[in-house]
Design a binder for these strands. Sequence first.
DNA 1: GTGGTCTAGACCACG
DNA 2: GTGGTCTAGACCACA
Lengths: 129, 129, 129, 129
Amino acid sequence: MFTLNPASGVPIYRQLMEQVRRLISSGQLRPGAALPSVRDLALAHAVNPMTISKAYGLLEAEGLLERQRGKAMLVAAQPKPRENRSERLARLQPAIEQLVTAARQLELAPDDVAQALRRAMEKREKDDA
Amino acid sequence: MFTLNPASGVPIYRQLMEQVRRLISSGQLRPGAALPSVRDLALAHAVNPMTISKAYGLLEAEGLLERQRGKAMLVAAQPKPRENRSERLARLQPAIEQLVTAARQLELAPDDVAQALRRAMEKREKDDA
Amino acid sequence: MFTLNPASGVPIYRQLMEQVRRLISSGQLRPGAALPSVRDLALAHAVNPMTISKAYGLLEAEGLLERQRGKAMLVAAQPKPRENRSERLARLQPAIEQLVTAARQLELAPDDVAQALRRAMEKREKDDA
Amino acid sequence: MFTLNPASGVPIYRQLMEQVRRLISSGQLRPGAALPSVRDLALAHAVNPMTISKAYGLLEAEGLLERQRGKAMLVAAQPKPRENRSERLARLQPAIEQLVTAARQLELAPDDVAQALRRAMEKREKDDA
DNA sequence: GTGGTCTAGACCACG
DNA sequence: GTGGTCTAGACCACA
């Protein structure tokens, strides 16, 4: 469900927060849905529970998640349950810009990059299935 | 020449190192070429000079840069001054994977992502010109 | 500057957050003022630095504090630098309600409570001076 | 009879214990008097019965309450069934100190605080009647 | 020097 | 079982 990369330089709890936001924004996590428990996630990604807990806590402060005493964290009831395509594309923009910066510094042609991207997406789709 | 984003979570010196590596790998920075001075770069990006200096120092330790007394940092003579396309594509892979992860969590179609990518690359090309 | 009571049941980081809010609301901490460093506060109150850091971090997320890389935390520039008396009295209300509940359960007369309060305030004033 | 605030940070069972102690100390709960049943209290305050039960259990361990098989919890026979005024004022002291701390951090004058306190006590008296 | 992140592990509150 | 809080201590990023 989540992809955490401890070597990326981005704090793990921030990676997690961003991915939860995306799953909510796409509707893959719907209002009322339960998130994986802190301990499960920590175990699955070989990460300290406090790191997961910090991400959950900050998302709760943001209003995206809700806590139930003694139960798993839930996706909060949202005023805006699912974002439309252009909103989701806007969320993707930072990752695109970063890729563009890298591609141009590597002097790679748009076609080559686009092709590599397609291939990677298809591969991921197959792997996830 | 460089794009530094202090808010990204990735340490600035690492962002800089990665970008220097890419510019060398693409041949935009050739062996013997001078890099911007620490002071200029620090000023241009509103960053502490020590941060720039740290990046340069680590790249020197890697053997990619060479320091000349009293002069600017130079790109070191390389065994392999320019990488071929597939090598450079391999360098791009992490950024691609990250984009794919984001796109799938946002449930965006490969076509939409590829199109957004193309548009972003064209825009950057125009802006840089 | 701060009074932290680890035995009160209220999490230490919350006690600290509340007290910072009050000092800002009264103008004792003005926009731009520096807060005690995490380490100093932790040492002074025999508390773990992370506990202080958590409070500061949450107040930053709230927008009350601002961070400067490598420097102490500052009080953020406020749209509303100092609250007026009635606003500050409103902030006091929860503590008053709690006292009233206790007093009535102890069957203490309003006069007795008010007198004890006055005495405590005068004593504190003298002690602080 | 009780005021439980789940948001205060203080564990609910501790809030309850403290309030039972106060009602006993003032004689509002006399030796032999029955306390509300766990179920009723839990229902009335939308709290888990185990939480109430834990408070009762701890008070029983303290000797303040006694359990009768199949009946409600009773106030235990006390060596000193009702405390005098100064003893009860001493019990109030922590709540007073907390109020004083808050008031001084808010830079509120003793007169203002005392007045607000009086008003709150009168209001509560009227509401309870 | 500053704050930030993470770990390993303890104990608590609640269901 | 859930999440929350705290500790002791390491290492990192930045001034």
